[in-house]
Amino acid sequence: MFGYQTTAWAKLFARTNFLLAVIGGVCLIGLVVIIAVGVIMRYALGTPILGINEIVQLTALAVVMTSLPYATQHRVHVSVDVFDTFLGRLGRKIGDIFSRLISGYVLFLLARRAWLKCLDALEWGDATNMLNLPIWPLYAILSVGSALCVAVFAADIVLILTNKDSE
C-alpha cells in the first residue's frame, strides 16, 4: 500500500508501525475492560476505584499515540480534494511533498519538545493526582509517536520522489 511494499526498508518500517499499533490495539481493548471494571466495582460492588479515570485517560493517550504512525502511513488523514484536477500531476506531487515537509517539521518540534518534557517530568516527579502515577512515560510515548510520524512523512517523500508511491 502506498509503495510501502515495494522496498525492503519501507517494508521493515511498515512492520514497525504495525507492531506499535498492535500495542495500541491491546490498550484499546484494555480501555473497554478498565471502564467495565470501574462501573462494576462502583455500581454492583459499591467500592469505586478512586482515580480510575486517570488510568482511563493515560490508556487513551497510549492508544492514540501508538497508532498515529500506523494511521499516518495508511493516509487516513482527511484532506481537501476539490483542486486535484486543477493542480495537475506535478502540482499534486509538489503539494504532497510540501505538506509533508512542513507537517513533518512541526511534528519534529513536538517530538523534541515532548522528549525534553519527558526528562523534565522525570526530574520533577510529575505524577497524577489520585493515584500518583508517573507522567513521564506518557511524554515519552507522545514523543516517540510523533517522531515516527515524522519518519513516515520522510519515507513518503522518498517514495514519491522515486515514483514508487501509488497515489
Binding site: 481537501v80 505538506s99 512542513i102
Partner: peptide
C-alpha cells in the same frame, strides 16, 4: 495549505503553531 492537499488536521496545526509563534514567540508556540 488545504488547496495543496495538506490534511485539514495538519493545516490547522501548522497555521495555529506558526501564527502563535509570530505573535508570541516560537518558544511559546512550541
Amino acid at each position: 495549505l488545504m488547496i495543496l492537499r495538506t490534511p485539514v488536521a495538519f493545516a490547522m496545526l501548522i497555521v495555529g503553531f506558526f501564527g502563535y509563534g509570530i505573535l508570541e514567540g516560537m518558544r511559546s508556540a512550541t
